[in-house]
Amino acid sequence: MIHVTEETRSSGPVAAERAGRAGGKASPGVSDAPHPGGRGVRSGAGFGRSRVHRLLLLAGALGLLVLLCALSIAVGSRQIPLGQVLAVLTGPHDTQIGRIVWDVRVPRTLLGVLAGSALGVAGAVMQALTRNPLADPGLLGVSAGAAFALMLAVGVMGMTSLYGYVWFAFAGALAASVVVYVVGGLGRGGQTPVKLALAGIAVTFMLESVTRGVSLIDPQVLNRYRYWASGSLAGQETATILQVLPFLVGGAILAVSITPALNNIALGDDVAAALGRRLGRIRMRGALSVMLLTGAAVAVAGPIVFIGLVVPHAVRALSGPDQRWLIPLTALLAPCLLLAADIIGRVVARPQEIDVGIVAAFLGAPFFIALIRRRRLAEL
């Protein structure tokens, strides 16, 4: 959606198999999996990357995030000289430019960082729990479920408080996840990455259709839904963003707490159970983490797709499959992609702008097509 902005108005490890494809045969006894203590065996498939290499990646990702945050504050659909932006950041901001920077761009940047990290970490956790390379909150119906429940709360029940309808977003995200995994497991062969992706797309389209139908009841709700459904970082106040911060922090803590167990699950359920992991409890905590992260992000930014799909794959290629490093790196790089998409959307259609959800889909769709066209879609 193009609109006038606020500024202008004011089942088992695959390491051995991959080694066999690369070198002709798999070396016995060498795996890419962590031992029961959670530390990875130093093989050449990702866990062998040095700590210094990964620390440099973390430092580089943090530096890139800081740079994009600065660009997000300095660049917008309204051109403001950099000197004036710096002046209102360090001095009084009761001018028109000060209100644009502090009331529009700073909250927008903060929301981009929080929503991007939430969607990226949620996607990484989903991919690790299911060993499905196509897992993403937007593709597997989680975002659509949260959006559907949120629209029911706002459009039908008349809720206006964020603390009132955010719980509906959590419930919708959980219900949609259950439906997708049940539908994706039907038929011969059980759950496969492609079947889950197809089930997620089908559930997403169904929920989006019903959501649009519900929004037609009230023209005012329809206008709000049309703006929100495309995915946007604009129009939220800092107070509103801070209201969802506890949910995002709770989801992130849950995700980090299960990273050693996710390394064990990469070996397969049987091996993880033999290593002492309680799979039911781990999956429960992982599902709760995804629900909190996705529900809170969707409640304030709308359904944004491909962030949770693209970034974990890119991070995995850079740092290896060790979840103890993959999750923090994803939390830093996912908002970089979202902020970059938001900046592009602001400048390509000046003085109007393109919503970040549209730009993110444009950037992520080629990656998704390339991923599903791979000759063999292996489990993670």
Rank of each mutant, 00 (worst) to 15 (best):
N132W: 04
R131P: 07
L67I: 12
P107K: 03
L114D: 05
Q84C: 00
A128R: 12
A74V: 04
S43N: 14
H35V: 14
L140M: 07
G141K: 13
S27R: 15
G44V: 11
A74D: 01
R51Y: 10
L89N: 10
G145A: 12
L55W: 14
M159V: 06
R39K: 10
A118H: 03
A22G: 09
D136G: 06
S43Q: 09
V41L: 10
A118V: 01
G38C: 13
A135R: 11
S43E: 08
V121Q: 08
G83K: 02
R54Q: 08
G63W: 01
L119M: 05
M157S: 06
G83Q: 04
R21L: 05
P92N: 12
L56R: 14
L67Q: 01
V66G: 06
A146L: 02
R54H: 04
L82H: 09
D136C: 04
V113N: 04
G76W: 01
V66S: 12
T130N: 01
T130F: 14
S77C: 02
A22K: 15
G44E: 11
V52D: 03
L89Q: 07
M126A: 12
A122D: 10
A118K: 02
C69R: 04
F148W: 06
P137L: 10
R49T: 12
V121M: 15
S143K: 01
S117L: 13
S161R: 14
A118W: 01
L162F: 07
L129T: 07
L110Q: 13
A61K: 02
R51K: 11
I80C: 00
L67W: 09
G123W: 07
Q79F: 02
L67Y: 07
F148G: 04
G76L: 02
L86D: 02
A118F: 02
G141N: 08
L111H: 00
L114T: 10
V156Q: 07
G60R: 14
L119C: 03
G63F: 10
P92C: 03
R51F: 08
L152Q: 10
N132I: 08
G158D: 01
G112I: 11
M159E: 07
G76I: 02
A70L: 08
M126H: 06
A149D: 05
G40H: 04
A144Q: 04
R105L: 05
L57T: 05
V113C: 09
G20H: 11
G76S: 12
M151P: 03
V52F: 06
L56M: 10
L64A: 15
F47L: 09
R108M: 06
L71P: 05
V85D: 00
D136Y: 03
T90D: 06
A59Q: 02
S27Q: 14
M126G: 08
A149F: 15
A74W: 00
R51A: 14
G91P: 14
S143T: 03
T130H: 00
A122V: 06
L129V: 12
G76D: 03
G141Q: 09
L89R: 10
G145V: 05
R49F: 09
L65A: 02
A59D: 07
G60L: 07
R39L: 12
A33Q: 12
L67S: 12
V121W: 04
L65R: 00
Q79H: 11
A45R: 09
L68N: 06
R21D: 12
V154R: 09
R54W: 05
S50C: 04
G20R: 14
R39E: 13
A128H: 05
T95I: 08
G37W: 06
I80W: 00
A147L: 02
L82E: 11
